Simulated assay, not measured.
Amino acid sequence: MNAILEKQNILPLPAEYFARGGSIDDYKIVFDLLNLYSMHLNGRVDLNDPELLRLDWLNDGFNPETDLHLVFAADGTLVAFVECWTTQQPPVHPWIYGCVHPDHWGKGIGGHIVTWAEDHARLALDKCAPDLRVAPRSGVEAHNENGNALFEGLGWKHIRSFYRMVADLDSAPEESAVPDGIVIRPYDPETELEEVYRTFVDTFNDHFGFIEQPFEKGLAEYKHNFVEEPGYTPEMWFVAMDGDRMAGICICRRENADDAESGWVSELGVRREWRKRGLGHALLKHAFAAFYADGKKRAGLGVDASSLTGALKLYENAGMRVQRQFNMYEKEFRSGKELAVESL
């Protein structure tokens, strides 16, 4: 039997604070805290629309009453929150995310919420086969020195970094040449959602951390997170077609979640058969042109800084630059077989 890491005790809160589980109705106070935290750290909000947070908590398998932990000051002000996601099947990498109000830093609250989430994430051990490696993951911005030190002090390891990239759209972008035989067009929301999802799975099977989900579960989650969200704009979903075969996708939001003047590329992927022909570059430039025509001043996306498919170089060649860096941390609970993609 694979060794299991000794349990970390939940670090206590100072006496003047109290904690409770969450509810779906807490999304607005958490939204306000997230934006206050982001303004302090980055000089900008994290989300423009609280509905995005509520929608996130409505994902199947996430229960705010048990998977969300809120910390309050004596006067009832929310000062910290943390989410622990074990919705993946199997949940070999529970995802932990939270923050602390800047006025309450240095009081041990960060240690409390991370260790609470660690304790909650241990439930995943019984939901995963005994030969599987189980290790919760979390992320913190690279310039948040206190946040990085917190994770490292609790025995977490920095395993990866991710970039948020941006391109200025000061003038009409030059569209890239499309490979022979390929047509880029908006997708048909009436008939093509399932094929878009299948293309997403095929292309992201080559991305670090990806774990393919049972088809019906994965499709339902994709629909919930991309179609049922308030920023869904089907005319900004582009597909690359080679005859009747979908070679690639570029799934976009008309408006970035934290910047109304920027478009956002949510997913960009090309199936293996059509790679190394410039199709990814052509899809990206097509999206830039659509954003510019829509009056946007910028375009943004997220990328693995050590992308297995060379996506970072593609985006740099398209004129994008790094805006922010996020560090991913991991704490191994149990050694064993790794299910997530780590290399090609």
Results as ranks from 00 to 15, higher is better:
Arg185Tyr: 04
Asn144Tyr: 12
Gly106Asn: 11
Gly21Phe: 11
Asp60Arg: 06
Gly21Pro: 08
Glu83Met: 08
Val183Leu: 09
Phe238Tyr: 14
Trp116Tyr: 06
Ala117Gly: 02
Phe238Cys: 01
Ala74Ser: 07
Ala260Pro: 00
Ile211Pro: 02
His281Asn: 04
Leu284Tyr: 15
Asp25Thr: 13
Ser335Gly: 15
Val341Gln: 05
Glu235Met: 03
Asp49His: 03
Arg271Asn: 14
Val303Ala: 10
Gly336Lys: 05
Leu78Met: 09
Lys127Met: 14
Asn256Gly: 02
Phe288Ser: 03
Asp75Tyr: 02
Val183Pro: 00
Phe62Leu: 11
Asp75Phe: 04
Gly243Val: 10
Pro102Glu: 13
Arg298Asp: 09
His112Tyr: 06
Ala247Met: 01
Thr199Met: 13
Val82Glu: 04
Ala172Phe: 09
Tyr37Asn: 13
Val134Cys: 02
Ala74Cys: 03
Ser343Asp: 15
Glu195Leu: 11
Thr77Arg: 14
Glu216Gln: 13
Thr86Arg: 14
Asn327Ser: 06
Asp244Cys: 08
Thr191Gln: 09
Pro214Thr: 07
Lys107Glu: 14
Glu65Asp: 12
Ile182Asp: 08
Gly209Ala: 07
Tyr163Trp: 06
Gln8Asp: 12
Glu267Cys: 01
Ala305Thr: 05
Asp168Thr: 05
Glu141Asn: 08
Gly295Met: 10
Val303Asp: 05
His143Gln: 13
Leu70Cys: 03
Val239Lys: 09
Phe162Gln: 12
Leu308Arg: 03
Leu53Pro: 11
Glu195Val: 13
Gly278Met: 03
Leu33Cys: 12
Met165Ile: 12
Ile109Gly: 06
Asn256Val: 00
Leu132Ala: 01
Pro234Thr: 01
Asp49Gly: 00
Leu314Met: 11
Cys128Tyr: 11
Tyr97Trp: 14
Pro91Ser: 07
Asn48Asp: 13
Leu5Asp: 11
Ala318Gly: 09
Leu123Asp: 15
Ala257Asp: 10
Glu118Asn: 09
Phe215Thr: 01
Leu34Thr: 01
Leu193Lys: 13
Pro12Met: 08
Leu284Ala: 15
Ala3Asp: 09
